[in-house]
Amino acid sequence: MSGGVPKLRLRGLRKAFGAKQVLDGVDLEVAAGHSLVILGGSGSGKSVTIKCVLGLIEPDAGTIEIDGRDLLRMPRREREAIGDRIGMLFQNGALFDSLPVWENVCFKLLAQKRIDRRRARDKAAEVLAQVGLAASVGDLSPAELSGGMQKRVALARTIAAEPDLIFFDEPTTGLDPIMGAVIDGLIVDCVQRLGATAVSITHDMASARRIGDTAAMLYAGRLVWSGPAASLGQSGNAMVDQFARGEREGPIKMELRR
C-alpha cells in the first residue's frame, strides 16, 4: 500500500476455536477512504476477522491497527473511543425489535451521545431519507418492514452516527437482485458522502464489483489474494477465479461428507 498510514491494518491475526484454526495469520490493509471487499467461502474466517476488529472476539495473536494504533494494546477507554467511530451493518440487520424504527436509527445518538429525543427524531427522518425511506417509516416496528426495508433501516442506523470506518457483513444476502443493487448503490453513496473507509464481506460477485475498490480473498484462514475488485473473474489467481465464477472444479475443495 503506497503513501500514508492505512486506515485499517491487520498483521498475523490468528484465532482458533478449540482445535479449529479459523484465522491462521491474516494480513490485510485498507487505505483511508477506500472500499475493500473480503471474499471467501463459508467458514473461511471472514466474519471472525471483522468481529476481531469490532472487539466482539478476542484474537489469539496478531495486531489490529486503526490509523496506525494497535487496538489490542491500548487502554480500554481509548479502544472504546476508537470503537465509537466504527459502524457495522449486520447480515440480518440486527434491528432492535423492542424499539421503533426511529429509535433504532438514532440508537447510538440517544444511548451514547444523549441527544434530545425530539432532535433524534428529526435526525432519524433525515437519515431515513438518505436511504430512500419516508419519515413515516420511523414510527413502525422493525417486524412490520420487508427484508429490503429492514436492510435500509440497518444501513441508516449504521451511518447515523457518521462513522469513519464501516463494516458490511453480506449486505445483499437474502435480497432480490434489484433490491441488492439498490442497497449496493446506497452503500456506495453513504460511504462516499461520509468520506468513510468501508470493509465488506460478500458472496455476491456483482455486489463485490459494485461496492469494492479492492478485493481480497480468504481461504482456510489466510489471505490468498488481493487486487482490484473490477478484476474479479479474471484475476489470474485460480482460487479467486474459481470462486468468482462459482465453478465446482478447481483448487478450492468443498468439504463434503458422503
Binding site: 470503537g83 440486527a94 440508537f107
Partner: peptide, 25 residues
Amino acid sequence: AEIGTMRVTDQIDALTTLSTHPMKY
C-alpha cells in the same frame, strides 16, 4: 426469551458496535 432472541439474532453484538455495553443496557 427476549435477551436470548437478541443473542441469537446478533442484537447483543449490535449493541456493542453501537458503543453500548449490553450488561449496562
